[in-house]
Design a protein around this nucleic acid. Structure first.
Lengths: 180, 180
DNA sequence: CCAGCTAGTTCAGTCATTGAACTGACACAT
DNA sequence: ATGTGTCAGTTCAATGACTGAACTAGCTGG
């Protein structure tokens, strides 16, 4: 096999998953992609990650089919989650839940709602109102009780405002038809 | 704050979680702990991880309260998951599911069953028979259709045999009452 | 053809990981 | 008490990854 094989264990799907998203920064990049970050510069600024590392991580995520790189977008390159990338959402949510549970005594740093009916989404991704498992693009993210307001740069501001997942943050660069 | 702050983002529970279990090898160690590995030497052999790194990872996992280190066990030191560590199970399962879905065409490498009624456990951790969310010690793990038999050392052998999670693998060192 | 923006690349310094060999504590037998 | 074995680590040189800052290159509009 010509697998990356950073971890030897061929018989554990966890090992296989970690080959793809287990490196330092990778999962944070994927998180930002869920939150609507699409541009190289925004990832770099948001995460404070060295640009060389960002280049390398984006490359392997694209290669693995987690992200696509769209070079002909108006205003420059855009990185977007694929279906395979979106399928990482339950795992990401589980990690966030754990972090909230053990490190955020004031409550979750962010809460998730079903955009259609404003129902809260539980730990299994199910809407408390309509009972369905909410699809990722229909998830609205909001600041939770444990959120600590600090940062002030525009991108951080944008991704902590109530918004739907996957909705691009800086499409502002394509001058919007209605507003400025 | 005196947090590790490998990742700057204070407002993301994902970042906080990754501070604890995001380093190379850490999640594999936790996985092994779920599968019943408790001893330093078994972790080292199972994972092929340098002993120095293992020492460092175990230390921080104990410090974070994910594992306990019990030095007065018969036969030597034992590492065990705490409640906080066990709470990582949904996240681990989500990562395994993703790996199975996209990298194991022959099906899941391992399957999980409710030990009490042999019901299959779905992606939300729910038993298909009784409908309850199965507690971790009641989960029985088996080789799945995608399992590829290769390794042959005793510990690998043991943790790929049908068994309940958290059940120690090498308690054999405490001579068993019935068998030799 | 210049200024400004974007998406990268380059590179020296630092830090983490690797793998192999070594130490120290305990247990049991001679 | 001496030797043998096991277990849980430590030590260390070599290698590799990450960091941060500066630099390059392509496009856009004036």
């Amino acid at each position: 096999m010509t697998l990356p094989s950073t971890y030897a264990d061929r018989n554990c799907s966890l090992a296989r998953t970690l080959e793809v998203v287990g490196e330092r920064w990778t999962l944070m990049i994927v998180r930002d992609a869920f939150f609507g970050v699409t541009r190289f510069g925004d990832f770099a600024a948001e995460l404070g990650i060295p640009r060389a590392v960002l280049t390398s991580r984006l490359k392997s995520l694209v290669q693995e089919g987690v992200l696509t790189r769209e070079g002909d977008a108006p205003g420059g390159v855009e990185y977007r989650l694929t279906a395979k990338g979106i399928a990482l959402w339950p795992a990401l949510r589980a990690f966030m839940n754990w972090g909230d549970e053990f490190y955020s005594p004031a409550g979750a740093k962010r809460t998730f709602r079903h955009d259609q009916d404003a129902g809260l989404i539980d730990q299994d991704g199910r809407c408390q109102e309509c009972g369905t498992v909410v699809r990722v693009p229909e998830i609205r993210i909001e600041r939770g009780p444990g959120f600590e307001p600090t940062e002030s740069d525009p991108v951080s501001e944008a991704i902590t405002t109530s918004r739907r997942l996957l909705e691009p943050v800086t499409a502002a660069r394509t001058p919007a038809p209605a507003a400025g």
